Simulated scan of single mutants.
Amino acid sequence: MRKTERYAVQEQNSLWQIYKTVPFLKVAKNFVFIQLGRYTPSLKLKNWLYKTFLRMTIGKHTALALMVMPDVMFPERIHIGKNSIVGYNTTILAHEYLIDEYRLGDVLIGDEVMIGANCTILPGVTIGDGAIVSAATLVHEDVPAGAFVGGNPMRVIYTKEQLEQKELEKRP
């Protein structure tokens, strides 16, 4: 189960009430720095922009590929460990606006995690250290450390122990 905080709304759907939940100027500023980061070819500059202006936590030697889309409303709720890779055009959400409520949740991505291209990571999930997320995966629940997951909806393809066993079998 994802770890999100739920907030009920009255009247129209929650997205129509967005600026009651997050200031317009914050969203505008975040949008500018995310767009700069999405297109910059420099990993160091991108990480600096995101850490400095969006208050994201990004570990040393972590690489966010071209076109990665961090949450524009609550990027400070995204935490990525060291030496991880987030693949091309992946979206990392820390919010979801629904009809009768909106939800917020931290996204915790561990150390040495590999996330393939075109993934969507939903709010409130944790991706454990050393996990591998296949391209085009919808990450809708926690990923155990060292696991290999993929698909839509996401499922565990190999656990850490199964991957270790496969490595042992390959050895002469």
Rank of each mutant, 00 (worst) to 15 (best):
P172V: 14
E161G: 06
D142T: 00
S134Q: 08
K60E: 15
V107S: 04
L138D: 04
D142I: 10
V107Q: 01
E96M: 12
G128C: 03
V125A: 11
V143Q: 06
V113L: 02
T40L: 07
D111E: 03
F53A: 02
F33W: 00
F148D: 00
L93M: 06
I85M: 03
V143H: 07
K51H: 01
K26T: 14
K3E: 09
I85K: 09
I132K: 04
I92D: 03
V139A: 09
I85D: 06
T21H: 15
L15E: 12
E112Q: 08
V125R: 10
G81F: 03
K60Q: 14
G124R: 04
E164M: 15
D142S: 08
Y19S: 14
D111K: 02
L43V: 13
N152S: 15
P70S: 00
D111I: 08
I92E: 00
M73H: 12
G150L: 05
S14W: 11
P153D: 08
P75V: 00
V9Q: 08
V27Q: 11
L168F: 13
A65M: 08
Q12M: 14
L15G: 11
A117N: 06
Q35S: 06
E141R: 15
K166L: 04
Y97D: 15
F148V: 03
N152E: 11
T159V: 04
N152H: 08
C119I: 03
E11D: 13
T4N: 06
V86S: 00
L49C: 04
L25G: 10
G59Y: 05
F74H: 10
V9C: 06
V86P: 01
Y19K: 12
K29H: 13
G124D: 00
P23N: 05
Y102C: 11
V107E: 01
V113D: 00
L93K: 12
E101K: 10
E167L: 15
M69R: 14
K170R: 05
Q17G: 14
I58E: 01
D100F: 12
W48T: 14
L168R: 13
T4W: 08
G146E: 01
G151R: 06
V139N: 06
G150D: 07
Y19D: 07
F74G: 06
G124M: 01
N152T: 13
A94C: 02
F24Y: 13
K60I: 13
Q165M: 13
L25E: 15
V143L: 02
P153H: 04
F33S: 08
G87K: 10
I132P: 05
A28R: 14
